[in-house]
Structure formats: C-alpha cells, structure tokens
Write a protein that binds this DNA or RNA. Structure first.
Lengths: 232, 232
DNA sequence: CTTGAATTAGATTGATCGTTCCACTTGCCA
DNA sequence: TGGCAAGTGGAACGATCAATCTAATTCAAG
C-alpha cells in the first residue's frame, strides 16, 4: 500500500525536480528513483516525458488560484486590494527566502527553457500568466479612483508580473534577495506615487510630495521578517 | 581554408543554438554539424561542453558594452540619459521583433536554466547583470535633479532590469510583443511621473498632472516602427 | 626543406537518454 | 469465487549523449 497514489506522487516529484534542475536536465530515471516507481508505472499514466511536463504545468495552473492568489489575500493584513498585489509578491519572496534565493517561479523558469517547442506546454504557460495578470488587474480595478482614471490597469498588471519574474531571475542569478527587494521596492514607490497623484487630481492632497505608504503600519512592533521585507 | 577561425565559429554557432534551444537541449553533435567541425576540434579548444558554455557567456559579457549598451546610446535621438534607458529596452525590443517574439535575452534565459549548477557560469551571469545595472544606474545618476533626490538610483536600475527580463519572458511565452510593450510602457509612465514630481519639488511645475513625455518628439512624422514603439 | 607543435579528422567509447514490451500482481465488480 | 481491467515490476531496446583516442594534416619558425 502506497502512501499516495502513484500518479500523484510522480507529479509531485517531477514538479519539484523540474523546478530545481529544469526539464531537460532531469532524466526520467531520476524521476523514477525519487518517486520510487518503475518505468512501467510512469508510462502507464503518461504517454511521454513531454506529456508528464504538460501534466505538471496543468497542476501548477490548477494550484495558482488556491495556493498563490487566494493565499496572497489571506496574507494581507488589510483588505486594501493594492496591498494584495504586494502581498502576492510577498508569497514569491517567501519561497525565495526559504530556498536560499535559488527557487523562483517554476512556470517562469520553464517558460524560458522550453520556449517555442512543445506548443501544448506553451499554451499552459500563457494561460498561467493570463490568470495571474487578470487577478492583479482586478485588484487594481478594485482600487477604483485611488489610481488615476487614465491609468491602464492591464498594462500595470503586466508590469507587476514583469517585475516579479525579473526580480526573481536577478535574485536567483546573484543568490541574493536584495535584488528582488530592490525591484519590488521601486514598484511600490511607483504605485504610491500613482495614488498620491490620483489624490492630487481629486483635490484631496495639497502637496504631492507627501506620498504616504499604502498600508498604514502604525504598529510599532513589526513581526519577524516583516520588518526586513518592509524596509525598502 | 576556413571562413572564420574554427574556435570563433564554434563559439558563434554554440551561442546561437544555446539561445534558441537552451543549453541542455542542444547536443554537442548539433553544434558540430552546424559549425562544420569534428569533435576533435571542439575538444581541442574547449575541455568540455560546460567549458564551451562558459566561453559563450564570457563572449556575451564582452559584447555587452559595445553591442548593447553603447548601441543604446547611439540609437538615442537625444542625449538625454533617461532616454538612453528606454533606448536600451528598445534594443531588446528590436531583437524580439525580428525573431517573431521568440528571442529574448540569452543571458537571462540561461540564468534560469542552469541556475545553481555550474558556479563558474553563474558568476558570469551575475557579472553581466551587474554591468547592465551599473550602466543604467549611471544614466539615472546623470539625470541629476530631474529625478527626486530621495530616489534610490541603484534600486530603480535593478527595477529596470527586472522589467526588461520579465517583459521579455512574457512576450516569449505569449509570442506577442504587446506584453513587453505594456510592461515597458508602465515603466516609462513611472519615470515620467518621477520627473514631474522632481520638477514639482523644485517649484518649476505648477500642476503635477501635466507629466510631459521624456523626449520632446515634436516631429510629426514618426519613423517606421518608431510610431508603434512610442504608442503607449 | 626540416622539424615540431597546433589543429583537424573520424572512429569509437561507455554511459545515459526516453521508451517499449511483457509478465505479473492487485483491486474491483459480477 | 471467477474474471477482467488497472496498475506495477523490470529487463531490454535503439538512439543519442558527452567525451576520448590516435592518426593524419596543416602551419609556422628555423
């Protein structure tokens, strides 16, 4: 009797190995050994290694909302949709921290590796990014007139994804989280400036210089790594 | 008699193949065939496939300044250092265009693929990004008080790199240049807003709403793709 | 020309690649 | 309990992998 269903165990192990080593660098034999499974089982559930990769990507897509997007909302200390955006980036930052800045976004990594080949996989990556961006856009739209009316919410959402992926890439290359923080920090400043400008437009703000932080973190005792993370 | 020195031809072909297919997906036999060379020659100049990759990365590093950074300055229609930043992004955009949105930054792609393995290669990637960011930071610093004094130039430079890499990744995943443009467009808006804020601080600007474009493109006839590229 | 090193040709290595095939066991429904 | 499909174990396949080796060739200096 197995701890988990074989298919599920193969998927979990393959996802982890693909993320750590990449797709081409991970041999089928390695997957079989790590999952404690013989090739007959693997090829019973998956027609090929590429098919396995597609299944892994589908899994990532299925888990995007419950494990990433919804979690970002839960992690937010306020219900400010703008904070949800940065809370989402915080989810990735946490993964970066616990892995020693070696783990990034598995989908982003594979996006660049498999590139044009394997159209089926590329479609899944495309949809993954699409869902990601749509959620961020919804949050931005939920911010209403706190952002300038003329602002293109979709473009900014794509911008946020770019900052996230690019920041993860830099931190992984230098094995330092500072680069991710710097990129995200600049993004936060930009958004804060947009909010200030919007308030200025509305006549609420006399002096545009006093761009206030998005979240009023008046609690004098910042929790664990919260301090470092906020210290932009 | 060979058209080019064997070593140089191997490097060129390998760089192209690594960029198109990735490192692990490119077999040595493929490189040999494409370069019209036998294995004896390759292993005379390079001790291993990994050594060849390191040489390719070194080449990218050597060509970063003359082929990318300096070229961005040449492409700029003005001497505004802030425009140089976006001209640099334009260099990558051009590569994206001529390849049908399949080619990005070769260094960025390999950065995510080889990841932690091959420390020698990782060091080169790290240095590549470091030089890149330093140049952008210098441009930002050259902008002087056109940017707010409190602005962290290094952080913003890293932010620019993140936007570039993340934008390239999205465009490659969706095989559409729109996503790159959206990310860069938001970046441009942010920088324009920073400039406006700086002018406001200096008392030059009465109304912060009239954030002017960075480049005064008063010519009514935008060149070829210049129009599309500027149409954010 | 001679000489010796630099370079190239090309067959060949053992290892590993992804995949197939078939015998076997297990679980489930009749 | 019989039967049949689902699932598993494990040997084996041809192809390709990166890398090695020696012999042949080219090249430059004396």
């Amino acid at each position: 009797m197995m701890a988990k269903h074989t298919k599920e165990r193969i998927l979990t192990v393959a996802a982890q190995l693909f993320e750590e080593q990449g797709y081409h660098a991970t041999g089928v034999a390695t997957i079989l050994r790590a999952a404690g499974v013989k090739s007959g089982s693997l090829y019973h559930f998956f027609s090929s290694k590429e098919d396995l990769l597609a299944a892994v990507m589908q899994r990532h897509l299925d888990q995007l909302r419950p494990m990433i997007l919804d979690r970002a909302v839960q992690d937010s200390v306020t219900e400010d949709p703008l904070e949800h955006v940065f809370s989402l980036l915080g989810v990735y930052r946490r993964g970066l921290l616990i892995s020693g800045s070696t783990r990034g976004c598995p989908v982003g990594n594979l996006a660049l590796e498999v590139g044009g080949a394997m159209p089926r996989v590329r479609k899944l990556i495309e949809e993954y990014f699409s869902v990601w961006v749509s959620q961020v856009r919804d949050w931005l739209e939920a911010a209403g007139d706190r952002l300038p009316a003329s602002l293109d919410r979709t473009a900014l959402a794509r911008h946020v994804l770019a900052v996230a992926q690019g920041g993860l890439m830099q931190s992984r290359a230098a094995e330092s989280i500072e680069l991710f923080d710097a990129s995200v920090g600049s993004l936060r400043s930009s958004v804060e400036l947009l909010v200030a400008r919007s308030r200025y437009e509305a006549g609420e703000l006399r002096d545009v210089l006093v761009a206030e932080p998005l979240t009023s973190d008046e609690s004098g005792a910042p929790g664990e790594d919260q301090f470092e993370w906020r210290a932009w």
